[in-house]
């Protein structure tokens, strides 16, 4: 290192680098601290964002379930379709519908099999052929990967019971004798 002081040339051999160069050792922890801070800041922002997305989905699912669940009683397919048509969910994609519950099974733990929630076959009335499902997506979502929310609630479904032909003694009546079946309302939601 060579210094010029009062036009005299002084040669300092004791490691003097310069005004900035001397500060390099003190810059290292500063840079490290800044990197750490911005790294943690970025991670925190991602976490907040992720939680907010989950909360948004939960709030939207609450809106859907409150509408569809109502008093835990659905008076037939028309009532179900009316509720379905009134849902104005735009921020999320959803598939909702009814799944039949089995009553009278001795080993209840062996009755149900594992299914893909994105590909559930919802209940279809065997007597009228009416589908109890509701969705705002048309494409097949069964192979979708990523986060989704699933909520389910037991619900009672009133169906029109039509006397079967195997009971020839019973005349068909037009006064809509009905049965109330236990079902599960299943709602699957995911983000666009």
């Amino acid at each position: 290192m060579i210094l010029v002081i009062n036009e005299k040339v002084v040669i300092n051999k004791k490691g003097f680098i310069g005004p900035i160069g001397d500060d390099i050792p003190s810059l290292i922890p500063l840079i490290f601290a800044l990197v750490l801070f911005f790294g943690v800041f970025s991670y925190s922002l991602n976490e907040f964002d992720r939680h907010n997305t989950v909360f948004d989905r939960s709030v939207e699912s609450s809106k859907i379930t409150a509408e569809m669940r109502s008093a835990a009683y659905i008076q037939g397919h028309d009532s179900f379709q009316k509720v379905c048509d009134s849902l104005g969910i735009k921020k999320l994609k959803y598939r909702a519908g009814l799944v039949e519950l089995k009553i009278g099974e001795e080993k209840i733990e062996d009755v149900y099999e594992t299914v893909n929630v994105l590909d559930i076959q919802f209940y279809k009335d065997p007597e009228t052929g009416q589908d109890f499902r509701c969705t705002n997506v048309e494409e097949d979502a069964s192979s979708r990967s990523g986060d989704y929310v699933v909520v389910q609630y037991p619900i009672a479904l009133q169906t029109t019971k039509i006397w079967s032909e195997s009971n020839p003694d019973m005349a068909r009546t037009l006064d809509s004798k009905f049965a109330v079946r236990p079902m599960v309302l299943v709602i699957v939601l995911w983000a666009y």
């Binding site: 669940r69 835990a72 009553i103 037991p154 009905f178 079946r181 236990p182």
Partner: peptide, 15 residues
């Protein structure tokens, strides 16, 4: 809480 409420109502309503 909503789940258990729905469950009880369903039990009471079924035929």
């Amino acid at each position: 809480a909503e789940y258990i409420d729905s469950s009880l109502k369903t039990i009471m309503y079924v035929t």
